[in-house]
């Protein structure tokens, strides 16, 4: 027997399928009755967009019994997925000619695609984040990074003070200081890898035969701090990506709402004749 989440997916997909069926039947009926179906589908489409955008408003009102956020999220995802069919029916399955309509269709497509990307990210990124040894709150990461960097420097300086040897200090100055103190590259932010961690581990391992006892103890601590810093960077990159995606999705939604309202007002103003 499928588990609860699978059963929910099946149910929601069935409901969406039924909704699409009703919509197809309705547009066929409109077409057969020679009605101005572009207006009818336009109302449905804009209504859908407003409902999908209302989810963000719902999030601002957590104390009100407006339904659980997960119910809204399910409705948002499935209706959002289905909305592309309503758009296709509205624009007659062809790219619009007018510049305003073209921009509007493009903004819809961008919003819809950002939604699809977001769905993928929200289903995959949490599992990547969960695999790290510790979990971090995004807002606390800068402070933790700073603490790790200070700790690494203090560890190396203590080893130098203990023995006077500078082998580990040289390695730290040349290879590790930047890793602990500089931000990661844009490429890392988009697609983080553990290459830097592995490379530094290898360099630190290779240098162990050259180290004094005190430096070896410090090197062990550096292994831990490198791992911690890499995990912090990974969380910052992945959590940051999710936050930036939400920002982009909401910005596109506002653009879509504004352009859609403009398009609707113009269409109504210049419709002419009976509807």
């Amino acid at each position: 027997m499928p588990n609860r989440l699978t059963r929910r997916r099946l149910l929601n997909s069935s409901l969406l399928g039924a909704g699409v069926g009703v919509f197809v039947f309705w547009t066929a009926w409109l077409d057969a009755s020679l009605a101005r179906d572009a207006f009818a589908t336009g109302y449905v489409l804009y209504g859908l967009v407003v409902f999908l955008a209302a989810y963000n408003l719902r999030k601002k009102l957590p104390g009100l019994p407006l339904g659980t956020s997960r119910l809204w999220m399910q409705a948002h995802a499935y209706l959002g997925a289905g909305s592309i069919l309503v758009l296709a029916a509205h624009i007659g399955w062809r790219w619009p000619d007018g510049w305003l309509e073209g921009v509007l269709a493009a903004s819809f497509a961008a919003t819809w695609l950002s939604g699809v990307v977001g769905l993928y990210l929200t289903r995959t990124v949490p599992q990547q984040l969960a695999r790290t040894s510790e979990q971090f709150v995004f807002e606390r990461i800068p402070r933790l990074r700073s603490r790790v960097a200070s700790d690494a420097q203090a560890t190396v300086l203590a080893a130098v003070r203990a023995t006077g040897a500078t082998t580990l200090a040289d390695l730290y100055a040349n290879r590790l200081h930047g890793f602990f103190n500089r931000p990661r590259s844009l490429a890392y932010a988009l697609s983080p890898t553990s290459a830097a961690r592995k490379r530094l581990f290898n360099e630190l391992t290779a240098s162990r035969r050259l180290l004094t006892d005190a430096e070896r103890t410090a090197a062990e601590r550096l292994f831990t701090l490198i791992r911690l810093k890499d995990d912090l960077d990974f969380h910052a990159a992945r959590q940051g990506l999710l936050k930036k995606w939400v920002f982009l999705h909401i910005a596109l939604t506002w653009l879509l709402l504004t352009l859609g309202a403009t398009h609707g007002l113009l269409a109504l103003a210049f419709r002419g004749g009976p509807t």
Partner: peptide
Amino acid sequence: DLDRCTRCDDCVRACAATHDGNPRFIRQ
């Protein structure tokens, strides 16, 4: 469930909004 949590902090904000502007739990 960390495999599903997107770290959006909607839970923290909701708690703060309903409790004197200060969440009553720590998401850790």
